[in-house]
Design a protein around this nucleic acid. Structure first.
Lengths: 118, 118
DNA sequence: TAGTTATTTAACCAGATGGTTAAATATCCT
DNA sequence: AGGATATTTAACCATCTGGTTAAATAACTA
């Protein structure tokens, strides 16, 4: 398996683990948005949104541009690409070799005793 | 964009946000393993590992089989498939339409003012 | 200058997270 | 039965997280 920078994956996955943040990303997928506008759909204070945005920013998932007093947020795809690669690598591996092993184990109802399991 | 079950994504991404848990998944990708064996490489108590395993289990990322007193863990690909789909969908969208927009903005150094931004 | 708007910072709070050690439980072995 | 092994549960602790409200900062507007 390939090696990935742990700290970056930590931040990316942690950022994606919150539904509000995922929804913010969905909003941004439709175009750049400023903080107030992003905050509009939520029953949540502005500082709360501000914090979510900082989490996303630190994870590198968005970029902030200041135009006077308004901060405009823009999606950034790179860290997601990393995460996607990580997930995809495991997913493929599991779906390939391991699901067949799983089936085998289901049918025989035995466990593999020695190390060459997969 | 397609709709995904939020609670499941929450749990999956949160589970993946910890490096110990990702490493456990990497171990399991090489074959089923019992708790003690999984714990071996870590400078961490058995209860700590036990907790990590429960997190992964609740996220549906692994299945537990009891053979007497030993609990054997097995990878489960389904929730990861969901997560992969989510990530991939956004990734593609961003890489496609938005990176071009980003470039445009970089060059012109203007911001889009009206709603039809993307 | 004064007032309004956009956003962040500060201080706080409740609950989750990730770890610990000690004890409990379940199973295997003799 | 009694002892060793595999794993979990309980109780505890420090830190992180996701929210709040109130105040600070920055920039536009009259």
């Amino acid at each position: 398996m390939v090696k990935y920078p742990a700290a970056a994956l930590n931040r990316t996955f942690a950022a994606l683990a919150d539904p509000t943040r995922r929804r913010i990303l969905a909003q941004l997928a439709q175009g750049d948005r400023c903080v107030t506008r992003l905050a509009r759909p939520y029953a949540m204070s502005l500082p709360a949104i501000s914090k979510h945005l900082r989490v996303l920013e630190k994870a590198g998932l968005l970029r902030r541009r200041r135009y006077g007093r308004v901060h405009e947020m823009q999606l950034e795809a790179k860290p997601l690409k990393q995460a996607a690669k990580w997930v995809e690598e495991y997913r493929k591996f599991w779906e390939g070799s391991l699901d067949r092993l799983a089936e085998y184990l289901e049918k025989t109802n035995k466990r593999p005793r020695k190390k060459g399991a997969a």
